[in-house]
């Protein structure tokens, strides 16, 4: 049982939970005092997609998957994160 749970992905899981809790503190709790308000959302998004990457690479085992699939996944992460940030900063807005 121990070598099932002692797998390195247990550390990844703990990291994910920690990052999620920290995001919640920043986004909903009072921890945002130290960060400029305009930076809160981009930070939350970047952390979220970092977490997505962790899940993809280590849980979905994309780290050891054929390269084309990994590249496809990484592209999705980069493109969607980038797109959401661009839309958030109203780069596409026409007034």
């Amino acid at each position: 049982m121990r070598d099932v749970v002692g797998h390195y992905t247990t550390w990844i899981w703990l990291l994910l939970v920690a990052l999620t809790t920290m995001s919640w503190e920043v986004g909903d709790g009072g921890a945002s005092a130290g960060i400029g308000t305009s930076l809160v959302t981009p930070l939350l998004l970047l952390v979220a997609f970092f977490k997505v990457r962790l899940v993809g690479l280590h849980f979905m085992e994309l780290k050891t998957a054929p390269l084309p699939l990994r590249i496809l996944f990484e592209s999705w992460v980069a493109a969607v994160c980038g797109l959401l940030l661009l839309i958030y900063f109203q780069v596409f807005q026409v007034h």
Binding site: L16, T20, S23, W24, V26, G27, D28, T37, V40, T41, L44, L45, V47, A48, F49, K51, V52, V55, G56, F59, M60, V80, L84, Y88
Partner: peptide, 15 residues
């Protein structure tokens, strides 16, 4: 799981 990781900040947290 991954999709919810994105949904959580988008819906509940983003300012």
């Amino acid at each position: 799981d991954l999709l919810w990781i994105v949904l959580f900040p988008l819906i509940y947290l983003m300012k």
